[in-house]
Amino acid sequence: MRFSQLFLRMGQGTSVEVFRCKEGTDSSYKGEFAGSFYGYDHVPREIWSGFVRRILPISHDTIAVIVEDYKDECQN
């Protein structure tokens, strides 16, 4: 699922903490904090078009999302 699809479906009062997907040393994935966004915030293009790898609940109005950057194979 793309981050844009998730972001457009969530409520205005929900906060999303975004982590960029980074590969660890033992083939596990770790997240690097990229920012926290509400439904009315501007989201950077690389996050907006990225793919959601994992969704984690934090509280009743906050979720954490690990996003993998979108890579267009046609351009290279």
Score class of each variant (00 low, 15 high):
33 F>S: 06
45 R>M: 09
68 E>Y: 02
74 C>I: 07
10 M>L: 14
67 V>M: 01
50 G>E: 02
40 Y>I: 14
22 K>V: 07
55 I>P: 00
64 A>Q: 04
34 A>G: 08
63 I>T: 02
28 S>Q: 13
20 R>C: 06
53 R>L: 06
18 V>R: 00
34 A>P: 01
8 L>F: 12
32 E>D: 14
26 D>L: 13
23 E>M: 12
71 K>W: 04
20 R>Y: 09
23 E>P: 02
32 E>G: 09
64 A>P: 03
11 G>P: 07
28 S>M: 11
67 V>A: 00
21 C>N: 07
52 V>M: 01
65 V>K: 00
27 S>G: 07
12 Q>Y: 13
73 E>Q: 09
61 D>H: 13
69 D>G: 07
17 E>V: 08
50 G>C: 03
74 C>D: 15
49 S>E: 08
54 R>P: 01
34 A>M: 12
16 V>N: 03
44 P>A: 03
57 P>G: 03
11 G>R: 11
10 M>K: 11
9 R>D: 15
61 D>C: 13
26 D>E: 14
38 Y>S: 09
15 S>G: 15
70 Y>P: 01
8 L>A: 14
20 R>W: 10
11 G>S: 11
74 C>T: 15
52 V>N: 00
45 R>T: 12
11 G>K: 09
56 L>I: 13
14 T>A: 08
67 V>G: 00
60 H>T: 10
49 S>I: 09
